[in-house]
Design a protein around this nucleic acid. Structure first.
Lengths: 263, 263
DNA sequence: AAACATCTGTACGGTAACGGACAGACAATC
DNA sequence: GATTGTCTGTCCGTTACCGTACAGATGTTT
């Protein structure tokens, strides 16, 4: 189970529906910063809102285990969640990540209930939790949440697909750069509280390989890091160090879920 | 565009709806051998059937290019189709494959219309082609086709996810074994008309690496091959040579789309 | 201040796979 | 039977990364 933070968003929600504006910032947790929730119509939002629970997800928390039925969906608003595959020999590989621009728990909608990967909170932060039943019912209405979640499924698959090819083709430093940029997009911050060990587990490589690659990026003044804290200093240069995969996935997210997809 | 084979399944379909039986075998192309079409109710099937077109897909044909809007969906009945990512440097990697147990064209349902990968026919064979509009409309009804396609989305993502991790973690021979077994499942045949060059492009490795790995499998009597024709002789041993990924994906397909999911 | 835990740097031999090149085997065609 | 094209086998040096190990650096606890 997940730590529930003091909630009651009643007044906040009332304000939202009255003003019918999309971006609101005078609240502790700005719910509509989650891109998916930002895209739904006010009518849909108001149906969902009573089921919202603002939760604070601590780093390291496991949201779903492989094969475990999914009860709650999470719409991150600051947290970053990784989907990780663990092999028999214990090696791990990230197959996708989620932040502001996505959600977790798609298998509940698909009908399979569980998946074969583990979902773990990489960067602690807030999220909106909604029980799977509520989302499934709203999805079944066939209105805008369905439209948006279908688009998100495609976006997420694009990410995973690109990762599959990337894992085969690209060098450590390129992949590390891509990963850092993606993680930054997930949390809208350039400071990532992550150890090299964690990053190595995501990229499916040895920890010393991260040390070497990150050392070169630091040498070049692109990032700075120390004891579990990585800071991205120069996004543009880091984009040059990253493989093409970063831009491809980002462009596809933008195409599918960008401004043009609103309303 | 796709070569259309002489069609008019009218009588065949009438027979189907009258007999209301699931498996039919006295026809050139046994449509309901496609697992997805086999799972839909007779009512849904009868709505879709007038839009069926039996097509013969030749090896090498490209069904979709990256970024190209998808007009037709294909439900393979003997053909095997690969989704391939091509990098800037020209290297290719397969991110997923489809045969009897699946379909192509999901982006049409998701709403993105196009995807970032290329769909290419690896093993020539038959397929049912249906225009995207028809499937989208049927999906929007929210009945059993929607249920089945949502499950298939999960199955396909599972395959791609596992491939992402597999590409990072497993050795050439394991991956080759996995790939051969998967391809065999796609076409329900143990003889695959494929050159080592093609296989290398799918696995994202050099052609000589395939020669070496395949040579070892042949040495062990597990497969036999010659000039663009690979024959799987010993499935059980090949499963032992394959990495865990094969079994994981197969089990998940079975869980999601197996007998238990019918009706 | 001392002890401890955690995180990072570096070094080592080992190896799987790479890029490229070329030769041999087999089928089809003329 | 000779020519051509395609497919497969093998070799070479090269390289990126692995597994393991250990030492140094930086915080945290007592």
């Amino acid at each position: 189970m997940v730590a529930k933070v003091a909630v009651s968003l009643q007044m906040f929600a009332t304000f939202l529906s009255l003003s019918s504006c999309f971006s609101v910032s005078n609240s502790d947790v700005d719910i509509r910063k989650n891109r998916l929730l930002a895209l739904v119509s006010d009518a849909t939002y108001n149906r969902l809102q009573p089921h919202f629970e603002v939760v604070s997800l601590p780093a390291g928390r496991i949201l779903y285990e492989p094969g475990e039925a999914i009860q709650e969906m999470f719409f991150p608003c600051g947290a970053m969640i990784s989907f990780v595959s663990t092999m028999e020999n214990g090696s791990t590989t990230e197959i996708g990540m989620v932040g502001y621009e996505g959600m977790t728990g798609l298998p509940a909608i698909w009908g399979g209930k569980s998946s074969t990967s583990r979902a773990i909170v990489q960067v602690g932060g807030d999220a909106i939790a909604i029980d799977a039943k509520t989302i499934k019912e709203e999805f079944a209405r066939g209105e805008d949440l369905q439209r948006i979640l279908l688009l998100y499924m495609q976006a997420f698959l694009t990410q995973v697909s690109q990762t599959a090819a990337c894992n085969r083709q690209h060098a450590t430093e390129e992949r590390l750069s891509r990963w850092l940029l993606s993680a930054r997009d997930c949390v809208h911050r350039s400071e990532l509280p992550l150890t090299q060990e964690f990053v190595a587990n995501m990229l499916g490589i040895r920890r010393p390989s991260v040390t070497v690659a990150a050392g070169m990026l630091q040498q070049a003044g692109v990032i700075r890091y120390a004891r579990g804290n990585i800071v991205i200093l120069d996004v543009a240069t880091l984009e040059n160090c990253a493989c093409e995969c970063y831009a491809i996935v980002k462009a596809e997210y933008e195409r599918l879920l960008g401004r043009a997809s609103e309303g």
